[in-house]
């Protein structure tokens, strides 16, 4: 029971990083300038590095020949536990930055908590990853300011992206059964506690960027328990392609 919970929690942690990393990977070579291309690829690399750590631990728990790759690539769509936010498409650079920013601030708060997780592996991954994620927050919040407070055009594009993506943000803080177990057992973070800090931080950065949060938002939930948007199928079609087309091979 405990093992199953821990396994499931590792998937919660890994899937968000993995699907966001995958989205960033799609952008490689297509950014507005070489420097941002390099930075976004770096973030993607960091995220996949974390995923590998989480899924190696998950594979050890699962046994039965499971590997980081079977866990990453051989699940059905409704078995992925990432949030709606990270599966949103790379509509334009504004969406990329806002999506990143909304996730990074959450990710930073989460990892700070996980550094003192009762699970050694999770604590070690969090301790290693927090430095990376501090950099991610620096990157996305700086671009949020630059573009929010840049030109009229960039301001409008950013506001539009905020208006569109904000509705996916609070799913990060709506705990699943597994996340409630993780908080209670000291393995994971208490999302209820993090939420007000998150909201405060987001508002502060948004103010600095001269952007506003939309009022009367109808928030969207469900992906963490397997109800994904239409995006997810296409992401997985790419992501799983070789593993599905050529099963049981080494690469």
């Amino acid at each position: 029971m405990l093992k199953e919970r821990l396994y499931d929690y590792l998937l919660h942690l890994g899937d968000n990083s993995m699907i966001l990393g995958q989205r960033l990977g799609e952008l490689c070579g297509h950014g507005p300038e070489l420097e941002t291309d390099i930075a976004l690829t770096n973030i993607s690399l960091d995220l996949f590095g974390q995923v590998r750590n989480y899924f190696q631990a998950a594979a050890a728990i699962k046994g039965d020949g499971a590997t980081e790759d079977s866990i990453a690539m051989l699940r059905y769509e409704n078995e992925y536990k990432n949030t709606l936010l990270v599966e949103q498409p790379n509509d334009d650079f504004a969406h990329v930055i806002v999506r990143q920013f909304l996730f990074d601030v959450y990710h930073q708060l989460l990892l700070k908590e996980l550094m003192s997780s009762k699970d050694e592996t999770i604590a070690a991954v969090a301790t290693k990853s927090i430095k990376e994620v501090n950099y991610h927050v620096g990157f996305s919040s700086t671009w949020l300011k630059r573009l929010g407070d840049g030109t009229e055009v960039s301001h409008d594009k950013m506001q539009e992206a905020v208006n569109k993506l904000w509705r996916y943000s609070l799913e990060l803080f709506k705990p699943t059964d597994t996340e409630i177990w993780a908080a209670e057992s000291g393995v994971g973070a208490d999302l209820d506690q993090l939420k007000p800090i998150y909201l405060e931080k987001i508002k502060m950065f948004m103010d600095e960027a001269t952007l506003g949060l939309p009022e009367a938002t109808v928030f969207q939930y469900g992906a963490k328990s397997g109800r994904h948007s239409e995006n997810m199928g296409y992401i997985l079609a790419d992501f799983q392609y070789i593993q599905r087309a050529y099963p049981n091979m080494k690469w």
């Binding site: 799609e26 291309d37 690399l45 050529y246």
Partner: peptide, 19 residues
């Protein structure tokens, strides 16, 4: 091929290469 790399290890290596 980044989004279709066959394993996490290969994906990371390819991302790093293109970078």
């Amino acid at each position: 091929w980044i989004s279709r790399a066959p394993s996490l290890r290969r994906k990371v290596a390819l991302l790093a290469k293109v970078q």
